Simulated assay, not measured.
Amino acid sequence: MEILMVGCGKMGGAMLRRWLDEVPARFTAVNRTPSAIPDGAQHAGSPEALDGRRFDAIIIAVKPQQIAEIMPAYTPFLKEGGCLISIAAGFSIASIQRELGDNPVIRIMPNLPALIGRSVNGLYADPACTQAHRDLATQLAETTGTAIWVDTEDEIDRITAIAGSGSGYVFEIARSYTAAAEEMGFAPDTARALVLETLSGAIEMARQSDLSLEELRNSVMSKKGTTEAGINALRRDGWLDQLLLETTGAAYQRAVELR
């Protein structure tokens, strides 16, 4: 199988590294900088470099704002019966087909932990896609983490707001948490270790537990203890719930705007 990836930034590169190890296909990646292409993939700097080759699937890994400018030069290299697979956030199937013709399209919404095989991938296929197209998309997604097929394209944009952008929220929370630890007098390296090990331990405990997150939270708290004092400050006037609603809502709204 021949697969072309157009664009190879952080997300595309993270996914391609996993695919090269585990997917039985020959990958060619288009990027202006050859050094950005992982070892094992062929490099192409322009449509001319493809020399008339045809591909079973073309992966759209450029920014949504670049699709109309960059992708039309590459879609003629799609084999008859092939499909387009987009990992671009927000850009709808209707918009892709408007710009690139009436080809079958699957959208995959990954997140950055694809780099370590822990991505959450939402998938949606337009009705023109065959089972073979869906099987390929499932294989690509499961190689980088989990594959979650959804019934509507709007669900992909909601997954974008929760999971696609979610690792960024977690990194920002961890950054702020680490800064608080430093303010308490810990050296930066110690503060980082304290925070990251606390977060990873708590998440892994939640993954292995049948208790609800509320029950797990309560299991840490004792009446009038230190955790209760901290939780009361964290939850005052419901501001944390509201902040996360606004955060995910803003990301979803941006995904809708990009359609």
Results as ranks from 00 to 15, higher is better:
residue 198 T to R: 10
residue 163 A to C: 14
residue 197 E to W: 01
residue 165 S to N: 08
residue 182 E to N: 02
residue 159 I to R: 11
residue 154 D to K: 10
residue 149 W to L: 13
residue 143 T to R: 10
residue 179 A to T: 12
residue 186 F to A: 03
residue 182 E to S: 03
residue 221 M to T: 14
residue 144 T to C: 15
residue 160 T to P: 06
residue 201 G to E: 09
residue 152 T to Q: 10
residue 138 T to M: 08
residue 165 S to Y: 01
residue 147 A to G: 09
residue 145 G to T: 06
residue 208 Q to A: 14
residue 185 G to A: 11
residue 211 L to F: 04
residue 215 E to G: 15
residue 174 A to E: 05
residue 157 D to P: 03
residue 140 L to C: 13
residue 172 E to G: 00
residue 194 L to V: 04
residue 173 I to K: 01
residue 176 S to N: 09
residue 160 T to I: 13
residue 205 M to H: 10
residue 173 I to A: 12
residue 149 W to Q: 07
residue 164 G to V: 05
residue 197 E to P: 02
residue 161 A to I: 08
residue 165 S to Q: 11
residue 193 A to N: 04
residue 148 I to K: 09
residue 162 I to T: 12
residue 155 E to M: 15
residue 191 A to V: 08
residue 149 W to V: 12
residue 160 T to H: 10
residue 212 S to K: 03
residue 173 I to V: 15
residue 185 G to S: 14
residue 167 S to G: 00
residue 173 I to L: 15
residue 159 I to T: 13
residue 167 S to E: 09
residue 163 A to N: 12
residue 214 E to L: 11
residue 146 T to M: 10
residue 173 I to S: 00
residue 170 V to C: 12
residue 193 A to Q: 14
residue 212 S to A: 05
residue 204 E to N: 13
residue 207 R to N: 02
residue 163 A to Q: 01
residue 154 D to L: 08
residue 188 P to G: 07
residue 206 A to N: 00
residue 174 A to N: 07
residue 182 E to I: 13
residue 201 G to P: 04
residue 140 L to S: 13
residue 166 G to H: 03
residue 155 E to S: 11
residue 184 M to L: 15
residue 189 D to E: 15
residue 196 L to Q: 11
residue 166 G to I: 10
residue 216 L to Y: 06
residue 161 A to P: 11
residue 176 S to A: 15
residue 138 T to L: 08
residue 160 T to N: 11
residue 156 I to G: 10
residue 165 S to R: 10
residue 202 A to T: 15
residue 192 R to N: 05
residue 151 D to A: 13
residue 173 I to G: 01
residue 214 E to K: 07
residue 175 R to C: 07
residue 189 D to A: 15
residue 213 L to P: 00
residue 204 E to T: 10
residue 220 V to L: 09
residue 192 R to K: 12
residue 209 S to L: 01
residue 202 A to Q: 08
residue 143 T to H: 08
residue 207 R to H: 04
residue 179 A to E: 14
residue 140 L to N: 14
residue 148 I to C: 08
residue 217 R to E: 07
residue 197 E to V: 04
residue 162 I to Q: 00
residue 152 T to E: 09
residue 160 T to F: 09
residue 165 S to E: 07
residue 145 G to V: 08
residue 186 F to C: 00
residue 198 T to K: 04
residue 210 D to T: 08
residue 221 M to L: 02
residue 198 T to W: 05
residue 220 V to A: 12
residue 179 A to G: 02
residue 172 E to T: 06
residue 140 L to W: 13
residue 148 I to D: 13
residue 218 N to I: 00
residue 208 Q to P: 00
residue 168 G to E: 04
residue 196 L to Y: 13
